[in-house]
Amino acid sequence: MEEKLRIDKYLWAIRLFKTRSQAGDACDNGKVKLNGNNVKASKTVSIGDVYDVKTEARKWVIKVAGLFAYSEAIKYYEDITPPEALDKITFDAPSFHTGKRLSKIGRPTKRDKRDIDEFLSEE
């Protein structure tokens, strides 16, 4: 029996997107195409399909090589992106921004506030 697999789950499982919701949003925003046509997140993936996927980091051309258990996802796709497209890519920044601020930068912590209050009250 062939397992049915949605494109948003597939793109998330092969680690093109950090979360499944990001993969679904990419589908909804027209960043995932099959044969030049936009794909909905609920589209069923078939072996041999070739998808054009645009992420923040780069543009991918992905051929589905197999359907899988999620733990082995990374083995079941082929990156067939043309070499000339890879020449245009620069990897200066990390591909995923978590939104978490860097440690020791920004607002003081509760401990910092207590230290400041203690310092000011000693005068």
Rank of each mutant, 00 (worst) to 15 (best):
I89Q: 11
A13W: 03
S121V: 01
L34F: 13
S42H: 05
Y51F: 15
W12Q: 13
D115A: 14
E78P: 02
T90D: 12
L16Y: 01
E3I: 15
M1Y: 11
K110C: 02
Y51I: 02
F91D: 13
A26I: 08
T19E: 03
E118R: 03
T55H: 06
K40D: 12
S121R: 12
L34E: 04
R107W: 02
L120A: 02
T90M: 09
E2K: 15
R58F: 03
F119N: 01
V32T: 04
K59V: 11
R114N: 03
I74V: 12
R114H: 04
V61W: 00
E118D: 15
L34R: 10
L67D: 04
L86Q: 08
S71R: 14
N29I: 01
K18H: 13
T109C: 00
R107S: 12
R15P: 03
R6H: 06
T90F: 11
N38S: 13
W60C: 09
K40R: 15
G36H: 10
N38K: 14
V64M: 03
D117K: 00
K18C: 06
G30W: 07
P82D: 07
L86D: 05
F91C: 08
Q22K: 13
T55Y: 05
T81I: 10
R111Q: 01
Y51A: 01
L120D: 02
F17N: 04
Y76C: 13
R20A: 06
T98C: 08
A69R: 10
A26D: 07
D25R: 15
V50C: 09
S21V: 12
